[in-house]
Write a protein that binds this DNA or RNA. Sequence first.
DNA 1: ATTAAATAAAGAATTAATTCTTTATATTGT
DNA 2: ACAATATAAAGAATTAATTCTTTATTTAAT
Lengths: 219, 219
Amino acid sequence: MENTDKYNKRRQAPEPTLKRLPGYLYYLEQVREEGILNISAPTIGRELSCDPTQVVKDLAYTGIKGKPRVGYNVYELIHALEEYIGYNQVNEAFLIGAGNLGSALMAYQQEQSLGLRIIAAFDVDKKKIGQNVGGVHVLEYSKLFSLSGRLNVKVGILTTPNHVAQEVTEDLISCGIKAIWNFTSANLNVPEDIIVQNTSIGSYAAVLLRRLNDAENNL
Amino acid sequence: MENTDKYNKRRQAPEPTLKRLPGYLYYLEQVREEGILNISAPTIGRELSCDPTQVVKDLAYTGIKGKPRVGYNVYELIHALEEYIGYNQVNEAFLIGAGNLGSALMAYQQEQSLGLRIIAAFDVDKKKIGQNVGGVHVLEYSKLFSLSGRLNVKVGILTTPNHVAQEVTEDLISCGIKAIWNFTSANLNVPEDIIVQNTSIGSYAAVLLRRLNDAENNL
DNA sequence: ATTAAATAAAGAATTAATTCTTTATATTGT
DNA sequence: ACAATATAAAGAATTAATTCTTTATTTAAT
C-alpha cells in the first residue's frame, strides 16, 4: 500500500516539537515588546539554549518562511505559531474534578492562556458544587450529560481522583468529547479516535528526584 | 579518552523511562491491593498499553530481577521502584510563588505523594504571607535566605510569574538549591551542575490542541 | 525425568529525533 | 555591480529510543 504521508507536503509535527512551540511563543512575545521586528534562528537558539537548526525545523512546521541574513518577521512568526497550535480559535473545554489541581487550572487560565476556555467544571462533592473558581462555575456532575447535548465541547480535562478516571472518561466520550487532557495517574482505555494527553505531574517529580540522586552518587 | 559509561554496569535511565516509572508504581500498588504476589511484564504491558519488552527494560533500571515463567514479585518491585525514584528518602523542597499553581502543588502533596515534602513556601504578596496551604506555611520571600542557611534543602519549586523566574533561580542557587522544578515558561540560565526540570503545563495543552486539529483535518 | 510453555534478559534491527553538513539566497558593504 | 557574509532550507549523519528477535531459564505438565 502507498504511504500517503510521503505525498503530504507538511507532515504532522512530532511531539517534542509541539512541546517546544509554546516556549518559542513566550520568548517571541517578549521580543515583540522590545520592538524588534526580525529575529534569526541562531538568536532564538542562543536565548532558549537549544540547537539553531532545531529551531528552524520546529518553526518550519508552522509553514512560515524566514529570509536568509534577516531571519523571521516576529509578528508573522507569532501569528503562525498561534495559528498552528490552535490558540486563535476558541477551544472550549469541560473540566471534571474541581479539587486542588482542577481549581488551579481554572484559576490559571485567567492569567496564562493555555489555549483553552474552560466553560464549566463538574464535581460530585456538594461542597464544591455552586462555587465559582476563576470565573468557572462548578456544576453537579450529572449536569454534564444535559449540558454537552446543547454545546459542542471537544476537550475534557480530567482532574478527578484516579479511581474514577476510567468511568468519567467513558462518560466524556459518550458526551462527544474528542480529546482528554488526563492529569490522573490512571491509564485510560479509549477508542482509537479519541486523543488522550497524559500529563502526570508525578512523572516530572520522578525525573527530577532521580537526576538529583544520580548527581549525588555518580559525579 | 575512555568512556566510563561503558564500564558502569547500570547506566542512567533515559528520561522517557523515568517518566514511565510512576505509572508502573501506581498500577503495581493496585495489583498489590488485590493480593497478587507476582506479575509478568506482558501483563503490565497489556494493562498499561505499552510494549512488554519496554516494561522489562524500564524495570531493569531499578536493579530488580524477574523470574521466567513467573514474573516479578510485586512487593519487591514496588520497593525497588520507590528506592530507585527516591520516594523512600525524605526529599525536602522550598516552593517559591504561592499563587494558584503553587497552592495546588502544596495541597496536592498531601494526597498524592510526589516524593517531595514542601517544607516552606515563599512569596512577596502580603496577602499570601502567613497563610497555610496544605499544611505549608507561606513566608515572606526574604526569609528564604536565612531559612536555607539552617536547613539543607536541595529542591526548589518555581511557580512564580515568568518575569521573576531567572532572578529567583539565582537566589535559589545562592541558597544551595541543587535542583529546580520549573513551572514557569521562562528559560532558566543555570550553571552546569544545577538540575532544571521544566514542566510547562502549556506544552501539553499545545500538543493536545494540535493533535485535535490534525484529527479534524487529516483524517 | 523429560518435555513443553512462558517469560526475563540480552542483543539486533528499526524507527524517531537531533545534530551536523551542504547548498542556495538575500542583504550589506565595498 | 560585485564580493562577502549571515542565514534559511534541505539533506546526511548521528544519536537515542523503541520494537523485534533470539537465547536461556524456570515452572508445570506428562
